[in-house]
Computed example of a mutant assay.
Amino acid sequence: MASHTVLKEQLTEMGFDDRKITRELKRLGSKATIESAIEALELAQNRGSDDDEAAGGVGTDDEEMASDKTTSTSASDGQNNGEAGAAAAAAPETEAEREAKRLLYEEKIKQRRIERAAKEKEEALKREVQRRQDGKGMGKMKEELEQLARIRAAEEMRREKAEEKRVRDAVLQQIAADREEHRRRAAGETNSTSTAAAAATTATVTAAAAVVTPTVPKDGKCRLAIRMLDGQQLINEFDAREQLSAVRVFVYTRAPVEGDISFVMPPNRAFNDDDMEKPLSALGLCPSARVHVIKR
Rank of each mutant, 00 (worst) to 15 (best):
G137K: 11
E123G: 08
Q133V: 09
R127N: 08
D134N: 15
Q133E: 15
M141N: 07
K126E: 08
K142S: 07
R159W: 01
I151C: 08
V129H: 01
A162I: 05
A162R: 07
R131F: 03
K142C: 02
K161T: 05
A154I: 05
K126S: 01
R159I: 07
K161A: 15
M138F: 15
E156Q: 14
E128H: 11
L145C: 03
E123H: 05
R159D: 07
A149R: 06
M141H: 04
M157E: 15
Q147K: 14
E144K: 04
E123Q: 12
M138K: 12
A162Q: 03
R152Q: 15
M141T: 10
K140R: 13
I151F: 09
L145K: 11
M141G: 03
R131P: 02
A162G: 02
R159G: 08
M157K: 12
E160G: 13
G137T: 11
A124E: 04
E156C: 08
E155Q: 14
Q133A: 10
E146V: 04
R131W: 02
E146P: 00
K136E: 10
E143I: 06
R127D: 01
E143P: 02
R158Y: 04
R150D: 00
K140E: 15
E143Q: 12
G137S: 10
E156S: 13
G139Y: 13
E146K: 06
L148Y: 13
E146Q: 03
G137W: 07
R132K: 11
E144R: 00
R159V: 08
K142P: 04
G137E: 13
R127I: 05
K126W: 03
E155W: 11
E143K: 10
E128L: 14
E144H: 00
R159K: 14
E160W: 11
R158K: 04
D134R: 13
K161C: 07
A153G: 01
A162K: 06
G137L: 07
R127T: 01
L148S: 12
A162M: 03
E143A: 12
E156N: 12
L125W: 13
L145Y: 00
K140S: 13
E143L: 08
M141P: 02
G135Q: 05
E146I: 07
R127V: 04
E144S: 01
R150P: 05
A153Y: 01
G139W: 14
E155G: 08
A153M: 03
Q133C: 12
K142A: 12
R150M: 03
V129Y: 02
K136S: 00
A154P: 03
A124F: 05
I151S: 11
R127C: 04
A162L: 08
R127G: 07
